[in-house]
Amino acid sequence: MHIERDVFYIILASLALMVAIPWAAGMLSEDIFFEWPFFFEVAIGGLLAGVMYSLVALGFVLIFKASGVFNFAQGAMVLFSALTLVGLQEKGLPIWLAILATLAIMALLAYLIERLVLRPLVNQEHIILFMATIGITYFLDGFGQTLWGSEVKILDIGFSNQPGFYFGGKILINDFDLIAALIAGVLVVSLALFFQYTRIGRALRAVADDNQAALSVGIPLKHIWVIVWTVAGVVALVAGIMWGSKLGVQFSLALIALKALPVLILGGFTSVPGAIVGGLIIGAGEKLAEVFIAPLIGGGIEDWFAYMLALAFLVFRPQGLFGEKIIERV
């Protein structure tokens, strides 16, 4: 992959700041506890959480690339898939069958969305499609909870959630986070391969470039959209399983989508690597800020820090890290 020099410098600078600011805060303030093992523990915890953000962001990117739709419903899809999975499991289905059934339901959902929402709105302005996905969000949130209830559910897929010591017993890391990161990594790589080397992947990239032109060379747009939304559904399910077994399956999962937004603007709406790198930077930056900066200004800055970070980024690079530069012609 080709990386622009600017991007490389920006990433390098962010890394440096992520180390320098906590260290300086630790030196200058008595309220901040700073030690290198502790720092790495926080940073790694942040990076692992960041992988999960990337996972949600990835779903956004796929749909945005293929159809130009800013899919606000990605978070709702995470919640809906997790709710469905737990609901089916509670009905007595073994976990593998429940997962398969949920996958089928997500595919059906993708088909319905294409048929009932996207197709009637084709050629509308982007903001209209964006609003429609907010409509989908409301529908899925309501539908999922009507169907499966709204109490917090426990999703157990058999991974240990024990913290373990690594690096000579100095750094504490949650095993579960490691496994989740690993799975997310595998998913990302396989998606990248899928889009790079399969026929569908090529068609998808063609559609992303210019859907009129793709249509005219005989690529069936509506099938592509169903496939993309299905893939986004699969990604949502994986994210739902990960987040759900970590936090419990509950309404707040839908809000994780909002956290994926700063990841997106950091990485660029159209870039898969952007979603990954953006997720890592936001995840680590957020945790580091919460531990090493927040005590100085009242705490609880996790609510907005990611957004402010992304905003600051945007001012220097309006197209995001890996987004395509917008060239204006007159």
């Binding site: 009932l116 929402v117 009637p120 709105l121 509308q124 302005e125 209209i128 609003m131 429609a132 907010i134 409509g135 989908i136 969000t137 409301y138 529908f139 899925l140 949130d141 309501g142 539908f143 909870q145 009507t146 709204s150």
Partner: peptide
């Protein structure tokens, strides 16, 4: 009551989409 609020969500979502399709 809480089912009503969930259904409200659903109907709300459907109406939004319906409106956008009928008259964007």
């Amino acid at each position: 009551v809480d089912t009503i609020s969930h259904i409200e969500f659903m109907v709300f979502g459907i109406l939004i989409i319906f409106f956008l399709i009928v008259e964007p």
